[in-house]
Amino acid sequence: MTIESGLLSAQTLLQYSTTESGTYSDLGGVQSVPEIGGAPEKVDVTTLADTQKKYIKGLQDTDNMEFKVVYRGSNFTTAKAMETAASKFWKVLYPDGSFVSFKAGVTVKRDATEVNGALTFTVILTPETDFTYGTTA
Rank of each mutant, 00 (worst) to 15 (best):
M1H: 05
I3C: 04
I3H: 09
S9A: 13
A10S: 09
Q11R: 12
Q11S: 13
L14Y: 11
Q15F: 00
Y16K: 07
S17K: 05
S17G: 14
T18L: 10
T18Y: 07
T19K: 12
L27S: 12
G28K: 10
G28F: 06
V30Q: 05
Q31T: 02
G38C: 12
G38Q: 12
K42G: 01
D44A: 13
D44L: 08
V45P: 12
V45S: 11
V45D: 09
T47S: 14
T47C: 00
A49P: 02
A49R: 08
A49M: 13
D50E: 04
T51K: 07
Q52P: 01
I56A: 12
K57S: 10
L59D: 10
Q60W: 00
Q60K: 13
D61T: 02
D61L: 10
D63P: 12
D63L: 12
N64H: 05
N64Y: 09
N64L: 10
M65I: 03
V70Y: 00
V70S: 13
Y71K: 11
R72M: 14
R72Y: 12
R72K: 14
S74N: 04
T78L: 11
M82Y: 02
E83N: 05
T84N: 08
T84Q: 10
A86K: 00
S87V: 04
F89H: 12
K91P: 12
K91F: 03
K91C: 08
V92T: 08
V92Q: 00
P95Q: 05
G97P: 12
S101C: 07
K103A: 13
G105V: 11
G105A: 15
V106K: 06
V108E: 13
R110H: 04
A112Y: 01
E114K: 11
V115K: 07
N116T: 05
N116R: 06
A118K: 11
A118V: 11
A118Y: 08
L119Y: 07
F121D: 00
T122H: 08
T122L: 11
T122K: 03
T122C: 13
L125P: 07
T126N: 08
T126S: 14
P127E: 03
P127H: 06
P127M: 03
E128S: 07
T129S: 15
D130H: 08
T135D: 07
T135A: 15
T135Q: 15
